[in-house]
Structures are given as structure tokens and as C-alpha cells.
Amino acid sequence: MDLTRRPRRLRRDGLRDLVSETTLAASDLIAPVFVDATTEERIPIESMPGHERVPVNEAATRVEEIAATGVESVIVFGIPESKDARGTRAWADDGVVQRALRRITDETDVFCITDVCLCEYTDHGHCGVLADEARDRWEDGRAEADGGAAGLHAHRETGLTVDNDATLDLLGKTATSHAAAGADMVAPSSATDGMVGAIRAALDDVEHTDVPIMSYAAKYESAFYGPFRDAADGAPAFGDRRHYQMDPANADEALREVDLDVDQGADVLMVKPALPYLDVVSAVDDRTDHPVAAYNVSGEYAMLHAAAEKGWLDLDAVAHESLLSIKRAGADLILTYFAEDVAKQL
């Protein structure tokens, strides 16, 4: 047996860290913040232990708590005081995200990203304006059920979709309203064809040319989003999002989506979810010289917490290992609900 080559020589304490190939830092992490216009106090998110919805007047305080752990970036999600068919509160000057942004940027130095989508703001919960046929069926279903679920059940599997092109202008309005309120970066997540180009044009038209776009370029129609939809009150009232989010079976399609977003002016490219799609993260990193982000989503967070509560896993260890694996796959930035906990370890 030839033992000339012994990899274990490099695994000794004192040497192991020197030859470590991947480094995870608090500055790699983006922490989510949920701001709720309907409450005056913090509300724990049951399916996401350790996270809360915070009222607008505590948005800056919440961001300061995150910054104290060493995390330098946050992404703001809003729960509005009211919803309608077009999601008009998404771009309102006095909307929940806009009000929170003004407080955060006035009182902190944290880099502030905003989610640009309509699902939290529409009464039907989809990520854009409903197509005519879909809107008619939605209204008919609501009338049949008197606002309940029974009459809507028949419409769940009818392929109801959003009107892609009618949604673009609304995304542009939302992004520009966020930029005007102080957003450092906008992050469109609606999986709408052409969203990056529409938002880039809208931002440039009002002289926000320096505001970058982090596109959810490869966003999959995933079963791992459940807890987030509780947190942001953004679950679809009928049907699902498979007609505009990507098929989990597809990897080559993700690269086509990335190419389109690069051509339209995206500055950062997001893959969502992260852990079940590390092959996609790696492929996107190989494909482009743009920074790559990965979203370690709510379901990934919740399942590790659930296993830890059972005593089956060491939560701190698996959280750190999960984020390290995402970084190793090629992500430059990681959006994660573990941001604060892992930053404290680091």
C-alpha cells in the first residue's frame, strides 16, 4: 500500500483552517425582515421559530438588532393594511414597505433590499394581475362562496394564471416607489417574463440609475415555501404558481432565465430555493461573472428547527453547515433566516 499521499496530514488543528477552501462570513448573509401594517406589536411566526412580524414603528429597531450580530444587509417584506385585485398598496407612497424604509434608512446604516412582488398585496394572492378569464372565474368563485372556500374549490385546478405583460408596469411602479423611499437594492421575485427590463427602465426613467436589481432569476415552484406564506400572508387563494414559477425538474431552463435577466440588466442573480438546488447554484455561478445569490428558504429553515426540537440534530451545527454548503456551491450572497444565529457563531 502506497501511503506517500496522506490527505489527513492537512486536517490537523492549526492547519485545517489554513487550507480551508470556503469561508463563510456574516457579510455574506442577508436577513429577512417582515413588517406588518396591521399590528402595533410584534407577532411571533409560529412556523418559523425566532422570527416575528414587526409593526412599522419597530422596523428600524428590528434592523438594529440584526446589525448587532454582524449582518450588514436585510431584505424587507411587507404585510399591508388592505389588499385588492391589483395590489395597489405595493406602490403606495404610504405603503408598509415605504414607511418602514424611511425609518430604517433614517435610523440605521444597514444595506436595505426590498422584495418587489404583488402576492402579499393582491386579494387573490397571485404574483400579478389576473388574466381576464382568471379574474372572471375568481370573482364568480367568490360570489358562489360568499367569500368562503367552498365555491372556490372548483377553480383550484383550472389553470388560472396572471397576465404577464399587464403586471410589468405595476412591478416598475413598486420598484420606483421603494427606491424613492430609500431602498439600496430592489429584488423582483414575481417570476414575470421581462420583469428585470421593465424595472430597470422604470428606475432609469426617474433617475434611480444607481439602484441595482437582484433578480430572482431561477425561482422554482417549490414545496419549501410554506412557512413564508404564513409569515407574509401571501398564499394564493386558489390554484398554484406552476404557470409562472419554474418546474423543479428543470436545470437548463434556469440558465436560460439567467441569460435573459443578464441581458435585461440584472446586477445580481438569485436561485430559490437553495439546498435542493445546489446544482443550479453551481451552474449559474459557472455561467456568469455576475454575483450569485441563493435563498435558503423558510421550509429549509423550519425543517432543521423541527429536527433540532426532536433532539435529532444540533441546530447550530447544521445551520452553519447548510450555509457553508450554499457558499461552496458558488453563492456569493445568502438570503437566510439563520442569518443572525450563524453570524453570532462566526
Rank of each mutant, 00 (worst) to 15 (best):
P7I: 07
R11E: 09
R11D: 11
D13E: 15
R16A: 14
D17I: 13
V19P: 04
T23L: 10
S27C: 05
S27W: 08
V33T: 09
V33H: 00
V35F: 02
V35L: 04
A37K: 03
T39K: 12
E40M: 11
I43T: 13
E46F: 11
S47V: 03
M48V: 10
G50E: 07
P55R: 00
V56G: 05
N57M: 05
N57V: 02
T61I: 09
R62Y: 08
A68E: 15
T69C: 12
V71R: 13
E72L: 08
E72Y: 11
V76T: 09
I79C: 08
E81P: 01
E81F: 08
K83W: 05
G87I: 07
T88Y: 04
W91V: 01
D93M: 04
D93G: 06
Q98A: 07
R99V: 07
R103Q: 00
T105N: 00
T105L: 03
F111R: 13
E120V: 04
H126W: 09
G128I: 10
G128Y: 06
L130K: 10
L130Q: 09
D132M: 14
E133T: 15
R142L: 14
R142I: 14
G148W: 00
A150I: 13
H153A: 11
A154R: 15
R156L: 08
E157A: 13
T158K: 12
L160M: 13
L160I: 10
L170V: 02
L171I: 09
L171P: 04
S177I: 02
A179L: 07
A180W: 03
G182K: 03
D184W: 07
G197T: 05
R200S: 09
R200C: 06
A201L: 08
A202H: 03
D204K: 04
D205A: 15
D210T: 15
D210F: 11
I213K: 02
A223G: 14
R229F: 13
D230F: 06
A231T: 14
A232S: 15
D233A: 15
D233G: 11
F238R: 08
G239M: 12
D240K: 15
R241P: 12
R242I: 13
R242P: 03
Y244I: 05
D247N: 12
A249Y: 00
N250C: 10
A254F: 05
E257W: 10
D261F: 02
D263Y: 02
D263K: 05
D263G: 01
V268D: 03
L269I: 01
M270S: 01
K272V: 10
A274P: 02
A274S: 07
Y277G: 03
V280W: 00
V284Y: 01
D286A: 15
R287E: 01
V292K: 01
A294T: 03
S298R: 05
S298N: 06
Y301A: 10
Y301C: 08
Y301P: 09
H305D: 13
H305Y: 13
A308C: 11
E309M: 06
E309L: 06
K310E: 12
K310W: 06
G311I: 12
D316M: 12
A317W: 06
A317Q: 12
V318K: 07
A319Y: 09
L323P: 05
L324W: 07
G330C: 00
L333E: 00
I334V: 10
L335D: 02
L335C: 08
T336P: 03
E340S: 14
A343L: 03
K344M: 12
K344E: 14
Q345N: 04
